[in-house]
């Protein structure tokens, strides 16, 4: 059993359904199950559903529904056995060239942890991560949980440009920048894998609830894999 969700208005056209106050697997599974049930129910007037770590936000058209109606409908959905709606998770293997030009912050992350860069990279690659949510930019995954020893806060000043494919750490979160963009996470490596491409039938590689395993590769392997089509 779990506590009933809390409903909060993000705007007069968006209702946020909160399942807890912390980042846990259980809370995030509830979020994804609830989001899937809302998708499946195709509630009238719902225009977008955005699951995040601990809540899901339901955007709606105020000409077609209202918060009272939606709250009632969602309350009814979450009392059902919504966990059966969770799609089977895919585990993705993502090759990463750690350190060097690809990971300008690996040295500092390793030093702060009292590890060699190779051991810090090995520790980062030793865990299977869960995709808790996507956000920030198209296809950017928020992954958890980074081993405590190498959990490092964001840079004091964000970089103006982080290369596409960069793998970063922010506290116990890790993530991958799908496009070149500004960013404040500590960059420890880079993957040649495209996380977002409109040239594929499925533009987004990862979905919330998926799992990610990082596999260390060297610069040569990175170069070879970069040549392969998306």
């Amino acid at each position: 059993m779990y506590a009933p969700p809390r409903f909060v208005l993000l705007s007069e056209c968006a209702l946020t359904v909160e399942f807890g106050d912390e980042i846990t697997l259980r809370t995030n599974e509830l979020v994804l199950a609830c989001s899937a049930s809302i998708d499946q129910a195709a509630l009238p007037g719902v225009v977008d559903v955005v699951p995040t770590y601990r809540s899901t936000t339901v955007y709606f058209d105020p000409l077609r529904t209202d918060t009272t109606t939606l709250t009632g409908q969602i309350q009814a959905l979450v009392t059902q056995n919504i966990h059966t709606l969770l799609r089977p998770a895919t585990t993705h293997t993502i090759p990463v060239w750690y350190g060097g030009a690809a990971g300008p912050d690996l040295l500092e992350v390793a030093e702060l942890a009292g590890l060699t860069p190779a051991d810090a990279a090995g520790l980062h690659a030793s865990v299977t991560y869960r995709v808790y949510m996507l956000g920030f930019s198209p296809g950017f995954p928020y992954l958890g949980t980074v081993p405590e020893r190498i959990a490092t806060p964001r840079l004091p000043t964000p970089r103006k440009q982080v290369a596409a494919g960069s793998v970063g750490i922010a506290g116990t979160q890790t993530g991958i920048y799908p496009q070149t963009s500004p960013g404040g996470w500590r960059i420890i490596g880079r993957t040649p894998i495209r996380l977002f491409s409109l040239h594929r039938p499925q533009p987004f590689l990862l979905a919330p609830g998926d799992f990610v395993r990082f596999v260390p590769i060297d610069e040569d392997e990175f170069g070879r894999l970069s040549m392969e089509p998306a």
Partner: peptide, 29 residues
């Protein structure tokens, strides 16, 4: 806070206590 959905119109207040009014191109979270 733990990252969550934001939308155009949201008024965020970062640690410097000065508000940011989010507009059309804002990030989804």
């Amino acid at each position: 806070i733990i990252s969550e959905a934001v939308s155009a119109g949201s008024i965020q207040v970062p640690p410097n206590r000065q508000p940011i009014l989010l507009m059309a191109d804002c990030q989804p979270t």
